[in-house]
Every structure is written in structure tokens, then in C-alpha cells.
């Protein structure tokens, strides 16, 4: 497999798409990692759905105890942060490190919103005496969201690292793979939540 870019017949509206690469933006290694992560969650999602089959009433009953408004805020926060990250990548591609850093910090701020809201939800449930052993629904709810929560935190650490490097003028028009790598991971965190939100909070 060659990694070289080939000139594609660009349509006029796509003036900038002169080259269509064989590989997604960012380091290939992060994509291998992303694939593995996606697989883990796919298994978890499927396990949730199939276990629910045998406990429909239990799942419906306890789904009602979740705070859907908090989940809405969190979904909007993650989508917004993903949007910001994407704008950060644009800035990096144009060689504007200062803008890139600002967009990334804004994305991290949205991540903080997510963490705070999610923590409040956890505090509420734990305060009500809910644990992994309470019932199967809560087991899945806590496991899935907490595992995702850890990914949000890891993603934020990565974004902060990229933002700091951008602040120090660490990227250029030629070399901004680092920004794309961090961005790809963060978009994955968003992607996972997009399935998790309807599955756990809405679908019944």
C-alpha cells in the first residue's frame, strides 16, 4: 500500500480537495487504537441491548430514574467541543497556531462541562445508594457511562497537551499531524456518546 497522494479530478467547488489521501487525518497508530476502542464499546452496546431483551420492564423502570436533561446538556457539550476541535484543526492547517490553541481550549472547557454534569449525576445516584450490584440496568448504566467518562478525561488530557504545544507555536502548515491525531481521538469520544445517549437514556 502506498501512502502517496494522488491527484484526483477535483470538481470546481472542491478546489481545495486536490489530493485524496488513502489514510484518515492523524497518525495511523491512533486510528488502530480508535478501532480497538470502538470495538470495545460496540460489544458493550450490544451486550446492553441483548441483556435488556430479557429484562425489558426492569430497564424501562430504571431508565426513568436517569436525568435526561443532564444527558442533553452533555450531548450538546460534546458536540460543541467536537465542533471546536474541528475548527482548531482548520486553524492548524492554515498555520494559525494561536487560533488553534484557542479553539482547543474552548473544546476542553466543554469537556469540563461534561465532566461536571456527569459527576453530579454520579453523585446523585451514589447518594441514592445505587451501585454496580444494585441491578442489571444500573450495572450497565454505571459501567458504560463510567468507561466513557474515563475516555472523556483521557481525551481532555490529549487536547490540553496539543493545545499547549500549539500555544508554543509547535505546529505548521506542513506538520500538524499531532493536532489531527488528538482531534480524531476526541471525535471518537463524541461518537461513542452519540450512541450511548439514545441507547441508555431514551430508547425504551
Amino acid at each position: 500500500m502506498s501512502n502517496d497522494m494522488k491527484i484526483s479530478s477535483a470538481t470546481p467547488g472542491d478546489a481545495q480537495r486536490v489530493a485524496a489521501p488513502n489514510y484518515p487525518p492523524g497518525d495511523l497508530a491512533i486510528w488502530i487504537f480508535i478501532l480497538a476502542e470502538l470495538l470495545v464499546f460496540a460489544v458493550f452496546f450490544a451486550a446492553y441491548a441483548f441483556t435488556r431483551m430479557n429484562h425489558v420492564e426492569l430497564f424501562n423502570e430504571y431508565q426513568a430514574t436517569l436525568n435526561r436533561d443532564a444527558a442533553l446538556i452533555n450531548t450538546l457539550a460534546l458536540l460543541t467541543s467536537s465542533y471546536f476541535v474541528m475548527r482548531g484543526v482548520v486553524a492548524a492547517r492554515e498555520g494559525n497556531n494561536a487560533f488553534c490553541a484557542r479553539w482547543l481550549w474552548a473544546a476542553v472547557a466543554m469537556g469540563v462541562v461534561f465532566v461536571v454534569v456527569k459527576s453530579a449525576e454520579y453523585a446523585h445516584h451514589l447518594g441514592a445508594g445505587v451501585s454496580l450490584s444494585t441491578n442489571t440496568f444500573y450495572m450497565f448504566y454505571l459501567s458504560l457511562t463510567f468507561f466513557h467518562f474515563m475516555h472523556v478525561i483521557l481525551g481532555m488530557v490529549i487536547l490540553v497537551a496539543v493545545a499547549v504545544k500549539a500555544r508554543g507555536d509547535g505546529y505548521s502548515v506542513e506538520d500538524h499531524t499531532g493536532v489531527e491525531t488528538g482531534a480524531s481521538y476526541w471525535h471518537m469520544v463524541d461518537l461513542l456518546w452519540l450512541i450511548l445517549f439514545p441507547l441508555v437514556y431514551v430508547m425504551r
Binding site: 484526483s8 480537495r17 485524496a20 489521501p21 488513502n22 489514510y23 484518515p24 487525518p25 486510528w31 467536537s82 465542533y83 476541535v85 474541528m86 484543526v89 489531527e180 482531534a183 480524531s184 471525535h187 471518537m188 463524541d190 461518537l191 452519540l194 450512541i195 445517549f197 439514545p198 441507547l199 430508547m203
Partner: peptide
Amino acid sequence: LAFAMLKGHLIGDWFMGLRGVRGIW
């Protein structure tokens, strides 16, 4: 669920930048 999958597809295409990639990726 279809909404969620559509959203995921939009994220993949527009945010992750897969729209401009050729091949299996």
C-alpha cells in the same frame, strides 16, 4: 437510533475528515 447513526456518520465525515479519504478508511 437512526438519528444517532446519522449523527455518527456526520461526525465521521465532516469532523473526523473521512469525507476526503479514499479506500477502506
